[in-house]
Amino acid sequence: MPSTAGAALPERSRDLRAFAGPVVEWAIWIAVLAWVFWQTQRFDREIAQYAFGAAGWPRALCIAAALGATGQLIYRIAEIRRGRAAVPEAAGPEIAAPESAAPEGQKPGLWQRAKHLPIFIFPLIYLYLVPSVGFYVATPFFILGLLLILEVRTLRALLGVTCVVYGLVLLLFTRFFYVALPVGRIESFYDINNAIIGIARYGM
């Protein structure tokens, strides 16, 4: 008897783990949809010529999406109960190719995960800085930083790629197409950005 109970415990915990994923996913969907539904109160106003008002359509979508999320939960629980194989993580048409290269069965550690953070955070820092320091000042540092994150280490490649990409952007978008890009809010950076635009457009 004790051996049966001992074997049942890990099985139960495995079952719980199998059910936890779909339930958590469903809970996230419902929480987000409930929040969106709740926010619709802010514009729940009548429109004279339209009976459903401004909030009718988004609310209907929230309800339909909640039904979809619940359908998915029921389907996946039924699937697990039937003992079918758990759905693999990446299998949709568009995801098959890029993700397939990842090695199976290796869970990255905390340090490895932390190493990937700059890939996500660095572009956000760039976006935060551009309105203040301007596109033309921030961009060369962005290119250089991104190359370093992508493990480019040779000085020639770092400088070469930065110069070529930055030069092409200036040539194409500033000189030829006159695309107005942010020039910064801070005065000194504003001047530098405009000087770079002047050089790119008129060569002075």
């Binding site: 429109i47 339209y50 988004p58």
Partner: peptide, 12 residues
């Protein structure tokens, strides 16, 4: 919104 032009999700 496309009928009454009421702002939606502009604040929250």
């Amino acid at each position: 919104d496309p009928v009454g032009g009421i702002p939606r999700f502009n604040e929250g």
